[in-house]
């Protein structure tokens, strides 16, 4: 019987649900000019972007803290290796688990202190099954198009998408994932600035020849 899962005991890296956008975050107070690496990319793209501005921050979306909830399958993953979440946790009808195995069963709205304790943030959960936002296996271009598509992104317009990426507390958890978990390496301010530069330049997507994961 598979009630007992061996992996259980060391698990937690937490449902890492990094939401939806998992990854992006920007702060409107950031002046892009203060970020040399960002500035270089932005100026080269000027007003007409070829998708490079998206590519400049897509590594954040592909980070394990984000991919734990944006990978294939109707279940979250955990750890930097993306193994299936302990306890056979499922996406469920609303992205918050099933029956006695809901996200909020173990996860609070904040990280718990200590190794192997469940991480947490407000609205901990996966994207719902109607808009699962699965990025695993997609090219950069496909990810770009999917997050901009209102039919796939919970009907968000571009402003709402950028707000979600840069300010949502569940997304921002990726930079503060709690003890024992690798945070997103790109500084949040840099990420946020890049997202807003991308938006300002027209939010173009790269050609469909990018990397897949």
């Amino acid at each position: 019987m598979k009630l007992l899962q061996a992996s259980f005991r060391y698990p937690v890296v937490g449902i890492t649900v990094v939401i939806f956008a998992a990854a992006m975050c920007v702060s409107s107070s950031i002046d892009p000019a203060e970020k040399p690496s960002t500035t270089a990319t932005a100026s080269s793209a000027s007003t007409k972007d070829d998708g490079a501005l998206f590519t400049a921050f897509v590594s954040v979306l592909r980070h394990p803290r984000c991919m734990s909830c944006h990978s294939r399958g109707d279940f979250p993953r955990q750890g930097d290796d993306g193994h299936p979440h302990a306890m056979n946790v499922r996406r469920g009808p609303e992205g918050h688990g099933v029956t006695a195995e809901k996200c909020s069963t173990c996860h609070q709205d904040h990280n718990l202190v200590g190794t192997h304790l469940p991480p947490g943030a407000p609205n901990w959960g996966l994207p719902p099954p109607t808009t699962p936002m699965i990025w695993q296996g997609l090219t950069d271009a496909q990810i770009c198009r999917s997050i901009k598509d209102p039919k796939q992104n919970k009907n968000r317009n571009l402003d709402q998408l950028v707000e979600h990426l840069t300010e949502d507390k569940l997304v921002m958890w990726g930079w503060n994932p709690g003890e024992g978990r690798t945070p997103i390496p790109m500084p949040h301010e840099e990420f946020a600035a890049k997202v807003k530069q991308w938006q300002a330049a027209g939010a173009s997507c790269p050609a469909d020849t990018g990397n897949k994961i």
Partner: peptide, 18 residues
């Protein structure tokens, strides 16, 4: 199985639980 996997029983009473 899906609902009960988060509850461990070291005595292994899972068949009887089911």
């Amino acid at each position: 199985d899906e609902a009960m996997t988060g509850n461990i029983c070291r005595c292994g009473t899972y068949p009887r639980i089911r």
